[in-house]
Amino acid sequence: HASLGSSRNKVVSHLLLTEPVPLAANQDDSTNDSSLRTLLTLCDLLNRELLLLIGWAKQIPGFSGLSLVDQMSLLQSGWMEALLVGVAWRSQGASREELVFASNLQLDEAECRAAGLADLYEALRHLTARYESMKLSAEEAAALKAVALANSDADPLDCPDAVHRFQDGLHEALQEHEASRREQRRAGRLLMSLPLLRQTADRAVHALLRLHRQRRVPLHKLLLEMLDAK
């Protein structure tokens, strides 16, 4: 939050200003099994992040003007992508190639493997490396989160024209933001990262479902509801 409102584009500044303050993990102490403890801590953090994301989405310019059905569809399709932009952004430059889920929940490869998240670790490090090589800024991360939600390919849409206008507004904001920094090509490069983001989010969703079904990791009702919509 060091560069609050530093964009010349009002939408991008607004997205960054309304970005929730990063959450801290609440360490689970209900079990002696350390890998299960990690998973329970992670799922609790994810659930709270999801709540904040829903609150934040309502503040994305144009989102609240969409029909309630479309708001729900976009969030149900794009929530994991939006949350993973945050994880990848926080994990840039992390020591020992850790994944920074929160300042007090940073998992390295061995910890992820022990928790049954080896696949997810690999996918998220790949995504992080992509953004790291671009030196993704806080403004860009906030804009990308909004774009990921708007572009989540929910189907069918209640009012496709309104969703397209919503997408166009965010696309223009990102273009203008980069143009004002004389970085015209970055908007395109950021959009080209969306397929990798989608792929990573799919793997994360499958990992969560697997943990829930095979290891009986309990999930909060909201998370279950969002997974059910997938």
Binding site: R48, L51, I54, G55, K58, L68, M72, L75, E225, D228
Partner: peptide, 20 residues
């Protein structure tokens, strides 16, 4: 929609902040 009532409620509740 009935199946996704938590999300529905969170989105409808537009005036008050999302409660944790």
């Amino acid at each position: 929609k009935e199946k996704h009532k938590i999300l529905h409620r969170l989105l409808q509740n537009s005036t008050s902040p999302v409660e944790l």
